[in-house]
Amino acid sequence: MITLVLKDLLLQKKILTTMFIYVFIFSFAFRSLGEYQPVAIITGVSYMLVMFAGAWEDKNNADRLWNSLPVSKWQIVGSKYLSVLAYVALASAATWITMTVLSLVNVSVAMGAVSLVSIAAGAVSVLLLSSFYLPIYFALGYIKSRYLNFVIYFAFLFLANALSGLVGRLSAVPFLANAGSAVLLGLGVGSMALVIAVSFVLSLRLYTRREF
């Protein structure tokens, strides 16, 4: 599976320069977000890399190749979820480098620092976004899923909004109000793991049904 992740990274090398340009553009576009600016950049760039990876696969009709090689479908599907983390690492590094260079040349765009917290928040956002996108990608392939992308964006924003309201109300629940940060972190990570697990199982089932 690691080989498949490395393959995804190798395919992205062609757009490394483009990635820095996107970080540069996003750093201006997301200035109004203040301290959340790096999170938004990391999320945006990472999700673009997810999209680009899908486009490469489709362009080369790679599903036919991978399903002819001794590679199981769960490896093919699982590697796409793992690759998301690799993209977050790439996007975070690109964001940090761009922000640092811009500050060195006195271009003031950095509204927040690229910290471990912003990287983690970016990772959570992209993993959630990808958990919505990947089952559709594995069911339909890149070209058809591309048309549903804006639906995914809006569904994600709607859900994020609904969840933030829910979290506000949940804080009134005595157990959660009295819970320590470790418990809350555990609940957060657990919920996240559940979403990814459900998404993975769904992706695998849908991909298994596909014909090439």
Partner: peptide
Amino acid sequence: FVYDESYFYETL
């Protein structure tokens, strides 16, 4: 296997 067209990644 060898197919009628190449399914290898052209950018590599």
